[in-house]
């Protein structure tokens, strides 16, 4: 019965193979995915690039005047790239600067805390299953829900200030002071996503053969040396995945920060993606061309990060 059914599929495939040759057959199997990917990824990327070389308020590309690299020139018109206020489009560069700061602190905190948590959760401790669930639970929440929960905690009359005033302290405007606002968006982001990265590292830890540790124990190797010489190298492929995924996600950060601080106070938590969104849709003049140019720049950065990850992991495995 099953053989009969597979023959039904085999027959046209065999015919096709005879027609186009064996070497071309893999492309036939790739075609559906490639078509899907093309329509929903390559075509939008191409349209986005097209917008980035046009100007004006019109929506349809055919109605938009060609401006060449004008949008890119406007974006990069800076006295000094380390001083956003010297740039013509200072909001973009403030977004870049904030995103870099956010990424640096968030990724380091995320990786270290995820690693620590994964190591603890890999030990034979009481209630291990419960703690694994607890750490993973925030991952299941929508970013908007996460941001709203923390907004209620952090606002003037929120839970945290209630605790502070209960202890005799003064209320702190956590979301209206630039330093505090940046701290809290990093904290909330780590809290919300740590469970996912912990899970990846936990899977990596569990894949390390136990006999290696037994051999180390027999040799009376100190714990820190076991971690440094055995655990870390064997966990390296998973760590690379975690670092790159965390990096890409940090650069793309938008929803949580947008709901929690709206990019403020001032522009102290304005991220690049929020800048793109506001330039294209939220501002009165919906500047699709400039937003598209900024998103092309962001796309190139993300592409470079992905290539770096590939190169790094290949070099390590070789």
């Amino acid at each position: 019965m099953l053989r009969g059914a597979t023959r039904i599929i085999d027959w046209p495939m065999e015919g096709l193979q005879r027609l186009i040759g064996e070497r071309r057959m893999p492309y036939v199997f790739l075609l559906p995915n490639l078509a899907f990917f093309g329509v929903f990824v390559f075509v939008p990327i191409s349209i986005n690039f097209l917008y980035s070389v046009t100007g004006g308020p019109a929506l349809f590309p055919a109605e938009r005047p060609f401006v060449g690299a004008g949008q890119y020139a406007y974006l990069f018109d800076c006295g000094s790239f380390v001083d956003p206020s010297s740039c013509r489009e200072d909001h973009f560069w403030r977004g870049v600067s904030n995103t870099l700061r956010f990424t640096a602190f968030q990724v380091v905190a995320m990786v270290l805390l995820s690693l620590l948590t994964a190591i603890v959760l890999n030990m034979k401790i009481r209630g291990r299953g419960f703690f694994r669930a607890v750490y993973f639970f925030p991952v299941l929440l929508s970013p908007v829900v996460v941001a709203l929960i923390w907004k209620w905690i952090l606002q003037r009359d929120g839970l945290l200030n209630a605790g502070i005033t209960g202890l005799g302290g003064d209320k702190i405007l956590f979301l209206s002071e630039p330093g505090w606002a940046m701290f809290w968006i990093i904290f909330v982001s780590v809290w919300a996503h740590m469970g996912f990265y912990t899970l990846i590292l936990l899977a990596g830890l569990q894949a390390i053969p136990a006999d290696i540790y037994e051999a180390a124990e027999m040799d009376a190797t100190p714990r820190w040396r076991v971690f440094w010489r055995l655990t870390l190298p064997l966990l390296w492929p998973n760590l690379i995945v975690v670092i790159v995924l965390a990096l890409i996600r940090a650069v793309q950060t938008f929803d949580e920060v947008f709901v929690l601080t709206g990019g403020g106070p001032g522009t102290s938590t304005l991220m690049v993606v929020q800048y793109i969104y506001e330039t294209a849709f939220s501002n009165q003049v919906q500047n699709f061309g400039l937003a598209a140019a900024a998103s092309v720049v962001l796309g190139i950065v993300l592409f470079a990060l992905t290539l770096a990850q590939l190169a790094f992991s290949q070099r390590k495995s070789s």
Binding site: L173, L175, S176, T261, P265, T267, E278
Partner: peptide, 15 residues
Amino acid sequence: MSKELWGSVAGTAYR
């Protein structure tokens, strides 16, 4: 005036 309105969000956001 408190910073929570004018100083708390970025760009053109209404509050």
